[in-house]
Amino acid sequence: MAFAFGLLSAVVPVLNVELYLVGLGALGGGTLLAGAAAAGLGQTLGKILYFYIGRGALNVPWLKRRAKTPPRWAERAERWRAKAEGRPLWTLGLVAVSSFASVPPFMVVSVLAGTLGMSVWGFAAVTFVTRTARFAVVVYAPGAALWLF
Score class of each variant (00 low, 15 high):
R134P: 02
S98G: 11
T127E: 12
M1I: 13
A37W: 00
Y20S: 13
A34V: 14
W121H: 14
K83Q: 13
L8C: 11
A145C: 04
R87T: 12
S110A: 14
F51W: 09
A4T: 12
R55H: 06
S102M: 14
A67M: 03
R55Q: 13
A82Y: 00
R134E: 09
G23F: 02
A77R: 09
L15P: 03
A36Q: 04
A145P: 03
V97W: 11
M1Y: 13
T130Q: 01
T132D: 10
G23S: 14
G25P: 13
V95M: 10
K64C: 02
L27T: 14
A67W: 00
A113R: 07
T31N: 14
P71G: 14
T130L: 13
A74S: 11
G25N: 07
G35T: 04
R131D: 08
G28S: 15
V14W: 05
E85K: 12
A133D: 04
F3M: 06
V97G: 12
G25H: 04
F51G: 07
T31Q: 13
L49Y: 01
R134Y: 03
L45M: 04
L112M: 04
V60Q: 04
W73T: 00
Y50I: 01
A84D: 02
A141K: 09
L15F: 13
G23R: 02
T69S: 11
V22E: 13
L24A: 15
E75R: 06
V111T: 06
W147G: 12
P105V: 08
T91I: 07
L33I: 14
S119P: 08
L21K: 08
S110I: 05
E78C: 01
S99G: 14
V126M: 02
L112F: 03
A82L: 06
I53P: 00
V11E: 04
L92M: 10
Y140T: 13
V111H: 02
G42F: 07
G6M: 02
F3H: 01
F3K: 08
L89S: 06
P142L: 02
S102C: 07
A67C: 03
A145V: 15
A2F: 12
A57W: 14
A4Q: 09
P13Y: 03
Y52V: 01
F135N: 12
N59T: 06
M118E: 06
I53W: 03
L21G: 11
V97R: 02
W121P: 10
T127V: 12
L15Y: 08
G6D: 02
A84H: 00
T69W: 08
A101T: 15
G29D: 12
A37E: 08
K64D: 03
